[in-house]
Design a protein around this nucleic acid. Structure first.
Lengths: 162, 162
DNA sequence: ACACGATATCTGTTAGAACAGAGAAATTGC
DNA sequence: GCAATTTCTCTGTTCTAACAGATATCGTGT
C-alpha cells in the first residue's frame, strides 16, 4: 500500500525544507528560552520581566515609554501594563508620567532593580556560553546572518516595526 | 560624551556573539509561531492543538499515548491532558484506554479531525513557502545543520530525550 | 496473594497571557 | 477655542499554562 509508505516517509523526512527549518528554529528557540527561565526563576523573575529590565537599563536616562517596551521585547506582547505592575510590586521599577506628554508612562529602574541586573550579568553571560559556546565564531556569524535574512520575508515582517 | 553612551549601548546589545545568536533565533522563532497561529485561528485551533493533531496523524494506527505526545511536541508541555480535553470537546480526537496497559490513554483522530488536517495541509505548506521560501536550498540546509548542532550543547540537551 | 515502587494520567489551584473596550491626553483642522 | 481624531495606557473579562499533589494501574519480589 503506497499510502503507508507515504505516511512513513512523512514521519522521517520533511516534505518541505522550509518546514524542517521552521521546526528546527522553533525547537532550538524553545530550548534557549527554557534554559534562561530556569536561570531566572530562583531570582524571582520571569523571562519577560528580565527582558523589560534589560530594555529599561539599556536605554537608561529618563526612562522608557511602555509602548516602546512592547515592541522592543524579544517576546513582544501588547500587555506591558501588567508586566510593569509586577516589576513595581517587586520593587524593581517605578512609573513616572512624562511631563511634556502626560499620556506616556516612563518606566525606570530602582536601585534594587539595577542591583539585580548587576548580579545577574555574569550568570547570563555564562549561560550564553554554556548554550552556544560550542559553536565557532564562523558558525555563530552564519546563524546571525541567516536569521536576519529569514526575517526578511514579507510574511514575517512586523506591520509597524523593523 | 557620546562615546561612552555608544559603548554602553553596544555592551548591552551584543556583548557576546552567543547572545546575539540567541536573540536572533528566538526572535525568528516568535515570528514563525505568530504566522502559524494567525493561520490556524480562523479554523478554531491553536498551535499546540494543531501540533497534537499532526503527531497523532503521523503515528496513526491504534493511537498515541498522551505522554509520548508531550515529548514529541514542538513546544513541549507537561499538561497534555487539558489539550486533549479541548480536542475532544471540539470533536477532533477521542480517548481510548489501552487494553494491555490500562494506565495509558491512547489518543486517536476522529473523521472530523482528519478532515480538518486535510483541509489545512495545503495552507500550511503555502505558509512555509511564504515564511522561508525566499531562502535558497543551501541556506535552508545551513539553517538545519546549524540548529541541530546548536542543540548539541549539554546545557540544551533534554534530560530524557534526543 | 500482598506490599512496594514505578509509571501514566488526572485534578485543583494559582499565576500568567490574550483580547476587546474604556479612559485620558495630545494633535490636527476648522 | 472647540470638536474630531489619534495616540498611549489602563481595566475587565476570559482563556490558557504551570506546578504540585492525588489517583489508578502495572511490574516485581517475597
Amino acid at each position: 500500500m503506497p499510502k503507508l509508505a507515504e505516511e512513513l516517509r512523512k514521519r522521517h523526512q520533511f516534505a518541505l525544507p522550509e518546514q524542517e527549518a521552521t521546526l528546527n528554529i522553533v525547537r532550538t528557540a524553545m530550548r534557549l528560552i527554557e534554559v534562561a527561565e530556569r536561570l531566572l526563576k530562583p531570582h524571582g523573575i520571569s523571562g519577560p520581566l528580565y527582558n523589560i529590565l534589560r530594555i529599561v537599563r539599556g536605554v537608561g536616562g529618563e526612562g522608557v515609554p511602555s509602548g516602546e517596551i512592547g515592541v522592543q521585547m524579544v517576546t513582544p506582547t501588547p500587555d506591558v501594563t501588567r508586566l510593569v505592575d509586577r516589576l513595581e510590586r517587586l520593587g524593581l521599577a517605578t512609573r513616572h508620567r512624562k511631563e511634556c506628554d502626560r499620556r506616556v508612562v516612563l518606566v525606570r529602574l530602582t536601585a534594587k532593580g539595577r542591583r539585580l541586573l548587576t548580579k545577574l550579568d555574569p550568570l547570563i553571560e555564562q549561560m550564553h556560553r554554556d548554550s552556544l559556546g560550542h559553536l565557532s565564531p564562523g558558525e555563530l556569524n552564519a546563524i546571525n546572518e541567516l536569521m536576519v535574512r529569514a526575517r526578511d520575508a514579507p510574511a514575517l515582517r512586523k506591520p509597524t516595526n523593523e
